[in-house]
């Protein structure tokens, strides 16, 4: 989002009479980006939709505490990422006593998901991504699919750029190795 638009939203949000209008623009501007950021982590549309709604509630209720020190974009991504990680933790706890782990169950669902239209190679790529550790998967998705800069990812995840680069390198190596298997 351009700097001008962000300043315009902040200005609308800061006045009670224009708050709703400002929030509507915020939702309209960021919903798509946030949705796909969440969806790439959670895979299932319904789960991504739930977490996106939770993200907007949190943004709505906590925006008065937001000091505009970082950009709204970073702040929203941080909320969405935390919600995603909490959701994954909850799901993983439900699978503790299951023979199948949560990521494997996602792979199975992906194969029959009507909202996933990738070919075999794309499916294999998604399976490889799902095999990565959670944080590595997050970094890979943000960098590869989200095409975000390391500085932005660093601000959102609170991790150093060096660590992010190393994490992304490990992730791509593992993915390429998995793709070339069989």
């Amino acid at each position: 989002m351009s700097k001008i638009k962000e300043e315009e939203i902040i200005s609308l949000l800061s006045k009670p009479e224009t708050f709703n209008q400002g929030f509507e623009i915020l939702v309209k501007t960021y919903s798509k980006q946030l949705y796909f950021h969440i969806r790439r982590m959670l895979i299932i549309h319904q789960d991504a939709d739930d977490v996106l709604q939770e993200t907007w509630i949190k943004a709505f209720t906590q925006i008065s505490k937001f000091r505009f020190e970082s950009s709204i974009y970073t702040w929203l991504y941080r909320i969405a990422t935390n919600n995603c990680l909490n959701f994954l933790d909850k799901k993983k706890r439900q699978f503790v006593f299951s023979a199948l782990n949560y990521e494997d169950s996602l792979v199975q669902k992906l194969e029959s998901d009507k909202y996933f239209d990738g070919d075999d190679l794309q499916l294999k790529l998604q399976k490889a991504v799902l095999k990565l550790p959670e944080k590595q998967r997050l970094v890979f998705n943000m960098k590869y699919y989200g095409e975000m800069k390391y500085d932005e990812i660093s601000e959102i995840l609170g991790t150093s750029v060096g660590a992010l680069k190393a994490s992304y390198h490990h992730a791509t190596t593992k993915i390429e190795k998995y793709i070339n298997e069989d």
């Binding site: 969806r39 790439r40 794309q122 699919y145 793709i179 070339n180």
Partner: peptide, 24 residues
Amino acid sequence: MKTLKDIEKKNNFKVPEDYFDNME
């Protein structure tokens, strides 16, 4: 050996029709 560069980068995740319409 295939690398990530050999795979087309695209978004394979779809959403129900009109999902983002009037979301705000």
